[in-house]
């Protein structure tokens, strides 16, 4: 799994940063190192940047960077995904939960 696949609200543990060079080094320097735990706070509109919480602070990374960080899920990502989808549905369709994500 990579962070780019994580839904908003999902927690993760970093396995490794898959790219080296400048980007990888920067991500590691900002705290994405093996074992570090974090969470996806939100994804941007139309595949915009992610807001990630790690080591007690928040940062923004693009989807392309989020695709380079391999992680393992903490907890149940599918529940977070359903919750996120319902929130989105609420906005887009103008009606509330459709009952699919109620297992929190």
């Amino acid at each position: 799994m990579v962070i780019a696949e994580a839904p908003a609200g999902a927690s993760f543990r970093v396995v490794r940063v898959m790219t080296g060079k400048e980007v990888g080094k920067r991500l590691a320097d900002m705290g994405f190192t093996e074992g570090a735990e974090g969470a996806v706070v939100r994804g941007g509109f139309l595949r915009g940047p992610f807001q990630i919480r790690i080591r007690g602070y928040d940062l923004l990374i693009r989807r392309s960077e989020a695709a380079e960080i391999e992680v393992e899920p903490i907890g149940d990502w599918s529940a977070a995904r359903d919750a996120a989808r319902n929130r989105r549905g609420h906005w887009v369709n103008g009606h509330g939960c459709d009952g699919r994500g109620g297992d929190e």
């Binding site: 928040d58 923004l60 990374i61 693009r62 960077e65």
Partner: peptide, 11 residues
């Protein structure tokens, strides 16, 4: 290539 976007989001 697209350049990285890594930016702190301070409170």
């Amino acid at each position: 290539d697209p350049t990285p976007f890594v930016m702190e989001l301070p409170p």
